[in-house]
Design a protein around this nucleic acid. Structure first.
Length: 569
RNA sequence: GGACACGUGGCCCAGCUGGAUAAGGCGGCGGCCUCCUAAGCCGCAGAUCGCGGGUUCAAAUCCUGCCGUGUCCGCCA
């Protein structure tokens, strides 16, 4: 609670100086109270005991008696506990909040190979990345959401080869033993075309040299910037990418810019980069003319040779990634990448190389993989949950809940609510977990509409909306009224909105703000229970103003974590 | 084999720039709709914070060893 900290620190610094504590180590010790009942902020006085040769409890007592302000201060068991004074807190919270962000950030996320539909594992990147985009925007930063399109190399090459050489009948017979696509997705290119890719992979595993040569020829041409091949690749992947983006759009995920990997080959920056890398002190080359950097000299452990040029002179994915990063740094002040944990080594290599070139190292938010109870999610093994199917199921289950809870509601209204609830629940289920936690996908948790879920937050918001619509006008500024504990708690939580948002955005921890939103909704629910806005038809203006403030924060916070703020559900 | 993560009640998860009785949710048990939407609220039961050492006035949090799980260790992307 920084607003409280700001008014405590100056007098506290004086009081500490008076008893002989110097320096500002105490600023780190002053933190959020673990015991909520004891206060909002606490200062453990144990560290001063040794320095002063005094009992911590005595120190706390003396400090307590020396301090005063818009807060209560009490000494308890060696701790100095501060609690914001209710009326002061209310005044602060009700007067509004300013968003402090001013950075210019480019966030690259998702960037999935355009070769097939999203399953929930691949979608974790998009959901976390988009939430980071939203949180940064809410915080006030200028954000550009970017998708790096992998439009060359083997994956697209295989896809393009398959589309050019396999008929629908070929594909169907090759994939005979596999499940057919869900008829629901007939005509959606990511689901349909991925079968060509899978069929090609199956055929390649039979070991035909002829096919490998044909694919290699395409890949090779693409890596040398061959226009017609790149065009062929684009024709192959673009419909697939469009299908994938349609899924993301349903999740509320949009991008500002798409940058193609081939751009850096075609415009010559990759070859210029390779020349520059060859001039580096840690550069070396192999017998066949391949080039690499020895990153062991820069502290990398394990495998230290980092190849950036093949023997035939062509670039590698990582080389293009470095060129891409140098270009990205020209676009913005801050760079954030969202990557799966499988990219940790690669990101380290790229980072060290960028450093070697005098460039800055981007921030990276890594996330662990989502597993299924049966093990690793894999399209190849058919052990997979497609995002499209998950969203359909979420929508259907939400619809049945709405019909049960709101009988008589028009069916198109039911559909609208169910869609918002389903999408929000699916997103939130992934967002609320710390990115570095690998978790197991379970349908019943993804489709839970109670407890720590998006609908829980949405519900609190609709309660506030319901009050506002009953009253039918704006709240009017009102002098502070009676502040019962539930309202004080709501004020306290609202006062932490920006603190939490700042932490979440600056430390790339979307889950921190998601969890905060649960706290805010919980606090609103208690307020709703104890502090009625409308009593026998009479509006309590102060309570109404508080409810409206909470509604505003709920709404903007929900947008920040990707929950759709319905007004009724 | 090496590198990097993760390991918290039956299940999931927060806390991990050290501080007070480890916070929530699910599931279980028991309550609350003549009262602004019960997708809600209240209460009860349930935790050797993976295991062992170390640092400290103080360790879930820091260091270290071990165990378990995941990921990576391509002149692939």
């Amino acid at each position: 609670m920084n607003i409280l900290r700001e008014i405590i620190e100056p007098p506290l610094e004086v009081a500490l100086a008076n008893i002989g504590v110097s320096g500002d180590i105490w600023k780190r010790a002053l933190g959020t109270s673990r015991e909520r009942a004891q206060g909002d902020l606490s200062l453990p006085c144990f560290p001063f005991a040794k320095q002063l040769g005094r009992n911590p409890a005595d120190i706390a007592e003396e400090l307590a008696s020396a301090l005063s302000g818009n807060f209560e201060v009490k000494a308890a068991g060696g701790y100095l506990n501060f609690k914001a004074e209710s009326n002061w807190l209310a005044g602060k919270v009700m007067s509004g909040i300013e968003m402090p962000g001013s950075k210019d950030v480019l966030i690259e996320h998702t960037s999935a190979n355009p070769n097939g539909p999203f399953h929930v594992g691949r979608a974790r990147n998009a959901i976390l990345g988009d939430t980071l985009v939203r949180l940064n925007r809410l915080y006030g930063n200028k954000v550009r959401a970017e998708y790096y399109v992998d439009d060359m190399g083997k994956q697209v090459g295989v896809l393009a080869w398959a589309l050019a050489n396999l008929s629908k009948d070929d594909v169907d017979s090759i994939l005979d033993d596999k499940d057919d696509i869900n008829p629901k997705w007939n005509g959606k290119a990511d689901h349909e075309t991925v079968r060509w890719y899978q069929a090609a992979q199956a055929k390649r595993s039979e070991g035909s040299q002829e096919i490998e040569d044909e694919i290699s020829k395409l890949v090779h041409a693409s890596e040398h910037g061959d226009d017609s091949v790149l065009k062929q690749f684009e024709d192959a992947y673009q419909p697939v990418l469009d299908g994938m983006l349609e899924t993301l759009s349903r999740l509320g995920i949009e991008f500002d810019t798409f940058t193609k990997e081939s751009k850096f080959v075609v415009d010559g920056t990759v070859s210029a980069l390779m020349d520059r890398l060859s001039g580096l002190e840690i550069h070396d080359s192999a017998d066949n003319g391949a080039h690499f950097l020895d990153l062991g000299q820069r502290g990398l452990k394990g495998k230290t040779d980092f190849f950036y040029r093949r023997g035939d002179g062509s670039s590698l994915y990582a080389t293009r990634d470095i060129a891409y990063h140098m270009w990205k740094w020209q676009q913005c002040g801050e760079l954030i990448n969202v990557l799966g944990e499988d990219h940790k080594l690669q990101a380290k290599q790229v980072g060290l190389t960028l450093q070697e070139l005098g460039e800055r190292v981007p921030e990276v938010m890594f996330y662990a993989f989502i597993k299924l109870p049966e093990g690793k999610m894999s399209t190849r093994r058919g052990n997979v949950v497609f995002m499209d199917d998950l969203l359909e199921e979420a929508q259907a289950q939400a619809a049945s809940v709405v019909r049960e809870l709101r009988p008589g509601l028009e069916e198109d209204e039911v559909t609208k609510i169910a869609e918002a609830v389903g999408v929000s629940a699916v997103r939130f289920n992934i967002t609320k977990v710390s990115p570095d936690k690998g978790f197991t996908f379970r349908w019943e948790e993804a489709l839970s509409f109670e407890g720590e879920s998006a609908p829980f937050v949405m519900y609190s918001h609709t309660r506030a909306c319901s009050i506002a619509s009953r009253i039918g006008r704006d709240s009017i500024p009102s002098s502070t009224g009676d502040i019962p504990p539930a309202m004080h708690e709501l004020m306290r939580v609202m006062a932490c909105f920006v603190d939490k948002l700042a932490q979440s955005a600056n430390e790339n921890k979307p889950h921190a703000f998601a969890i905060y939103m649960l706290e805010l909704a919980t606090a609103y629910n208690s307020f709703y229970r104890d502090c009625h806005v409308i009593n026998d038809g009479v509006v309590d203006e102060f309570n109404f103003a508080v409810s409206e403030k909470a509604r505003e924060l709920l709404r903007s916070g929900m947008i920040g974590v990707g929950i759709i703020p319905l007004e009724s559900m």
